[in-house]
């Protein structure tokens, strides 16, 4: 109980520190501006497919700015405490290093949750408003009712959040042994790019005739998560994915985040503060 309490206190403090960072305000504002701005791009688009454009913009903003937030927030909040030696003061208290790491991760997770929920709700409001207008203007295109699957938008937002948690965990893992914030942040963005190309690498090593290449390639490739599967609910018109698929994505995300977090605890436990 005391352990959970301490983790909660550290998470709350991390969230509070994040809420005061101007860079994070800027990232969040840009994401909101993009979603709202997309609403005024409609003159360039045509009819009902405009809703797809709005949803793409919203989920794209959530993915892009969310990734920037996950990486920079994790790197900055972690290294700020080390550089200002507030970590020394905290860790000289009856606080385990694992609690410190979990507190940081949960704090960043809370920040990302707030970001994703707010952006998903804004996106739903924008889509709903525009769809209502289009239903008036183009009734024949909406003869079967609303086209946007709003539950799907929420689910896509939830899976984006899980992806961002995985990204934050991996950035935290790098930060746990890295000597500079810059390195951690650059590594975070590299992991993001690799994660989005993972499916290509999977296909490449799976096609190899050599068992050794398949095994080695598999181990190397698997060191990075594949982010494509977190977009399983992104298609606006594809309907909700199967429950088993969602469960797999959640298990996959939590598994990666858990392993990265456990390794970050292991690595940070050996770090000289």
């Amino acid at each position: 109980m005391a352990v959970l309490q301490r983790i909660g206190i550290l998470a709350h403090n991390t969230l509070r520190a994040a809420a005061r960072q101007r860079l994070f305000h800027l990232i969040i504002l840009l994401a909101f501006a993009l979603v709202l701005g997309a609403r005024w791009f409609r003159e360039f688009n045509f009819g009902a497919p405009e809703l797809k454009f709005l949803a793409d913009c919203g989920l794209g903003a959530m993915g892009f700015f969310g990734a920037a937030l996950a990486i920079t927030a994790t790197g900055q909040l972690f290294f700020h405490e080390l550089e200002t030696r507030t970590a020394q003061t905290i860790l000289a208290k009856p606080v385990r290093r694992s609690e410190f790491i979990l507190g940081k991760l949960l704090g960043v997770g809370g920040l990302l949750l707030g970001f994703c929920v707010a952006l998903a709700l804004l996106l739903i409001a924008v889509l709903w408003s525009r769809e209502s207008e289009l239903m008036q203007q183009l009734p024949e295109a909406f003869e079967n009712g609303r086209q946007v699957n709003y539950a799907g938008v929420l689910l896509a937002g939830a899976l984006q959040w899980l992806k961002l948690i995985v990204l934050a965990s991996l950035t935290l893992l790098v930060a746990s042994f890295a000597q500079s914030q810059l390195f951690s942040v650059l590594a975070g963005f590299a992991i993001l790019a690799i994660g989005h190309l993972q499916h290509l690498a999977h296909d490449a090593y799976r096609r190899s005739a050599s068992a050794a290449v398949r095994l080695l390639g598999g181990a190397v490739v698997s060191a990075f998560p594949r982010f494509d599967i977190f977009g399983v609910a992104d298609g606006l018109d594809a309907g909700l994915p199967a429950g088993s698929d969602i469960a797999r994505v959640v298990a996959y995300g939590l598994g990666y985040a858990g392993i990265a977090c456990a390794l970050a605890i292991f690595s940070f436990g050996r770090r000289e503060i």
Partner: peptide, 24 residues
């Protein structure tokens, strides 16, 4: 610690409270 720096966004009371809660 030597030349300590603390969470600057907290008030003195909040900071001591934070450390007190960490200590249980």
């Amino acid at each position: 610690p030597e030349s300590p720096r603390f969470h600057e966004y907290l008030s003195g009371r909040e900071l001591v409270r934070f450390h007190g809660r960490l200590c249980g």
